[in-house]
């Protein structure tokens, strides 16, 4: 496979802050690649470099075989970029926005309609509604349609599902899968860890550098931790007390339960007994299956140590 994106030790600084720190990665043609990380981990900066909007201070970035600094003009016709912020004209209607972006790229809406049909289909009912009056999920669909209208080879989506409801998010990921089947390479970033499993490979980013890159299942399989769920009637007290135990490596909230990372000497029965003595009721500690979020927490912890 020949990579469609090749980043080689990319560094970008804003004053004293290093936003992206020596990031190297490759993405294969036709791949759905996720970039996962919390806010401020450098995802958006990386996107701007890929989208030719930012020059890296160090390193080289090639997209579709073109350098993002030297050949930016050629590249702009091959990239579909959807920025984090909704960036269509709110005072233009759905139809006007779409045909405006089509005419900037010198294409007609008609000739590329097959590509956007599954996404734009739901917007067809109100072509003359202003973009600003659409719901969050609809806005994302319109923005995606506009980013696709020139049939790009590669789609760069910067946190496309932030601020979108859970149902629309699911729909959005289904649409991305459809696009992937049409041969479009998709780079998508998110701070929702649960969405990461929809990608073929993911890069975990924190504080400007990459912690690990692999398929979601390999990452979870490689977790190799002694992981337990813990619940009781006083969750906050449970958290502080578990953290103070010597054979507990880490403890953090995970949905409605706590995840406990135990050392080899950790015994859940002994810990439960200890907690009951100190006044906790309904204490339950049972083995847990790790997921991407646990991997991310482990990787950031390893990095600190």
């Amino acid at each position: 496979m020949n990579p469609i994106i090749r980043l080689n030790e990319i560094t970008k600084r804003y004053g004293g802050l290093v936003a992206v720190d020596e990031v190297s990665l490759t993405v294969d043609r036709g791949e759905m690649f996720g970039i996962i990380g919390p806010d401020g981990s450098g995802k958006s900066t990386l996107y701007k470099i890929l989208a030719t909007l930012l020059k890296p201070d160090k390193g080289t970035a090639t997209v579709c075989g073109f350098d993002t600094v030297k050949d930016y003009k050629r590249l702009r016709t091959m990239i579909g970029y959807m920025p984090e912020r909704f960036s269509l004209y709110q005072d233009l209607t759905v139809e006007e926005n779409l045909s405006f972006f089509a005419s900037l790229f010198g294409v007609s809406v008609k000739e590329n309609y097959d590509l956007i049909a599954p996404i734009f289909g739901q917007l067809e009912r109100f072509p003359s509604r202003k973009a600003g009056a659409l719901s969050g999920g609809m806005k994302q669909k319109l923005a995606l349609s506009c980013a696709l209208i020139h049939r790009p080879e590669i789609l760069l989506l910067d946190e496309p599902t932030t601020g979108v409801d859970a149902v629309s998010r699911g729909e959005f990921w289904d649409m991305l899968s459809t696009l992937k089947r049409k041969g479009i390479t998709i780079i998508v970033s998110t701070s929702y860890m649960d969405e990461a499993t929809r990608c073929e490979r993911i890069a975990m980013m924190n504080k400007g550098h990459i912690l690990d890159i692999d398929t979601p299942s390999n990452l979870v399989a490689g977790l190799g931790e002694n992981l337990y769920n813990a619940v009781s009637d006083d969750m906050f007290g449970l958290l502080t007390q578990l953290r103070s135990m010597p054979d507990v490596i880490d403890c953090y909230t995970f949905g409605a339960t706590l995840h406990v990372v135990g050392s080899n000497s950790f015994n859940s029965d002994k810990a439960m007994a200890k907690l009951l003595v100190s006044g906790h009721k309904d204490v339950k500690i049972y083995p847990a299956k790790g997921n991407i979020e646990d991997v991310f927490i482990k990787l950031t912890r390893d990095e600190r140590e």
């Binding site: 989208a51 030719t52 909007l53 003009k73 702009r76 016709t77 990239i79 970029y81 920025p83 912020r85 909704f86 960036s87 269509l88 004209y89 709110q90 972006f101 900037l104 790229f105 923005a143 506009c146 980013a147």
Partner: peptide, 13 residues
């Protein structure tokens, strides 16, 4: 301010 310039900047304009 509205961010439309970002979508504009990646076009070949």
């Amino acid at each position: 301010e509205s961010g439309t310039i970002e979508a504009m900047n990646v076009t070949p304009v």
